[in-house]
Design a protein around this nucleic acid. Structure first.
Lengths: 182, 182
DNA sequence: GTCTATAAGTAGATAGAC
DNA sequence: GTCTATCTACTTATAGAC
C-alpha cells in the first residue's frame, strides 16, 4: 500500500507545519512522529518542499476551477452569492481547510515557487472578479472582506464553546452574503 | 550612539522577517545587509528571539493601553466607533503597521513566549469587548471583521495603483464603521 | 520500502583580541 | 562596539545494504 504511507506523511507534515511553522519543522520530527526514519520520507518525496507542493497542487486546481467558473458567469448579485457558497464548501472539506490554515500561517514559505505564486494570483483574481471597474473602493473592500469572512469564521471564535462549528460557519456565511451587496 | 545601531538592527531584522519569515531569516543575512558581522548583533541582543521581543514589547503596551481604555467605556456604538478609529491610528504608525504584518506572517514563531501569548490574548480581548453576552453570533463576527478590515485594507489592494494609501485607509475605515452597527 | 551511515552545509551562539 | 575564529548542534539530502 504505497499510497497509505505517502498520505500519512502528508497528514503528519501538514499538522506539524500548521502547529510549528514550515521552517521550524524538520523532517526528523515528521519521521519520528510517524515511526519511520528520515530516509523513508525521501523515498516518497524528492524534497521537503515537495511535501507541501503535493498538497498545494490539489488545492490550486480546485481554486482555478472556481475562478474559471466565475469568469463565465454574468457579474450579478446571484453569481457573487453563489461564489461565496462554493468557496465555503471548499473550505469545509477537511483537507482543504487544513491546507488553508497552513497558507495563512506560512505565507512566506516557498513564496518564489510557481505553484505558490499561482495560488496567490488565483486568490487575487477571485477577489478582483467580485467587483467591476466602476465600483467604488468601499465596494471592492467589502466584497473582498466577504470572501475573507469565510476564512475568519473558523479561527476567530476559537474560544467560543457555546456554538458548534456548523453554527459558526452558517453565521459567517450570513455575514459574508450581507457584505456582498451592502 | 548605541541606540542608533540597535534601532537599525531592529529595522533590518523586521524587514527581512516580513519578507522571508522569521525562521527562514538568519542572523548572517541581517548582519550582512547592515554591513556588520553576526557577533556585533550579539552585543546588542542576547538572542535572535530578543530582536523580535524588543519590538513586540512596545506594541504590546500600546495595545494593552487600548484594551484598558475600552474596558472603562460604556458599551455603546460611539465607543466601538472610537475604538476602530484609535486602532486605525495605531496601525497607521509605520512601526506598528510593520510589526503587525510580522505577526500576520509569523504566527507560529515564538508562539510559546509569554510576550507573544499576551499579544494574542489582548487581540482576542479587544474583539471580545466589542460584543455583549446576549449578542447573536453574526454580530460578534461582524464586529470582529470590522477590526480585521483595518488590517486588510493595507494588503488587500496591493495591486491597486489608482488609489493612494490614504484613500484606501479611509475606505477601509468606512467599511469597518459600517460593519460595527449593521 | 525502509533501514544505517554519512556527507556537506548552515544555524545560533560564544571567547577573546582590538 | 565590532572584529576573527570557532564550537556545538542541528539541518536537508544521498548512497547503498537489506
Amino acid at each position: 500500500m504505497r499510497e497509505d504511507t505517502r498520505t500519512k506523511i502528508q497528514d503528519v507534515a501538514l499538522e506539524l507545519f500548521i502547529e510549528q511553522g514550515y521552517e521550524a519543522t524538520s523532517l526528523r520530527e515528521i519521521a519520528e512522529r510517524l515511526g519511520v526514519t528520515k530516509a523513508a520520507l525521501y523515498y516518497h518525496f524528492k524534497t521537503k518542499d515537495d511535501i507541501v507542493l503535493s498538497l498545494a497542487e490539489r488545492r490550486l486546481s480546485e481554486n482555478e476551477a472556481l475562478l474559471t467558473w466565475l469568469k463565465e458567469q454574468p457579474k450579478t448579485p446571484e453569481t457573487r452569492a453563489e461564489l461565496i457558497r462554493r468557496y465555503g464548501e471548499l473550505l469545509l472539506r477537511g483537507d482543504q481547510k487544513d491546507f488553508m490554515r497552513f497558507m495563512e500561517r506560512n505565507q512566506t514559505s516557498m513564496r518564489h515557487h510557481p505553484t505558490v505564486l499561482r495560488m496567490r494570483e488565483v486568490m487575487f483574481a477571485l477577489v478582483d472578479e467580485l467587483a467591476e471597474p466602476g465600483d467604488p473602493l468601499t465596494t471592492r473592500i467589502r466584497r473582498s472582506m466577504a470572501l475573507f469572512t469565510m476564512h475568519a469564521g473558523v479561527w476567530l471564535s476559537q474560544n467560543d464553546t457555546e456554538h458548534t462549528e456548523d453554527e459558526r460557519r452558517e453565521a459567517a456565511m450570513e455575514v459574508a452574503l450581507d457584505l456582498l451587496e451592502r
